[in-house]
């Protein structure tokens, strides 16, 4: 049985905010199904007695003093903005969407 359907991929693409053409959805569903078939092998050895490792080193949170330090100017921070206005990032409308 397929691990992942075309509809699943369409839903995931929506969650990930990536538009996909019908053709891309077809391809992606087949390829992901193959990949998932290969990677689900992890389940063979991942028994409940094994602790997960999220990071290679054991580390705890590191804190620093909350001090004002030199940082980018407004102009520098906005230098790569696709659109700007009044020294701010200008973005498409956020409110008023369904």
């Amino acid at each position: 049985m397929a691990q992942i359907s075309r509809d699943d991929v369409a839903h995931l693409a929506k969650l990930a905010r990536v538009e996909m053409t019908p053709d891309e959805l077809d391809h992606m569903a087949t390829e992901l199904d193959q990949i998932l078939g290969a990677v689900k092998r992890v389940q063979e050895v991942a028994t409940s007695d094994i602790a997960p490792t999220s990071h290679p080193l054991e580390m705890t949170n590191i804190f620093r003093a909350d001090l004002v330090k030199p940082s980018l100017t407004n102009e520098e921070a906005l230098s790569g903005a696709p659109a700007k206005a009044e020294e701010r990032f200008k973005v498409p409308q956020i409110l008023g969407e369904e």
Partner: peptide, 22 residues
């Protein structure tokens, strides 16, 4: 898309969780 799938609820333990155990 693969990552979004592996992290989504219902699949998280079976995929991402198992991978962390490996």
């Amino acid at each position: 898309i693969l990552g979004t799938y592996a992290l989504s609820s219902g699949y998280y333990d079976a995929f991402y969780g198992s991978a962390q155990k490996v």
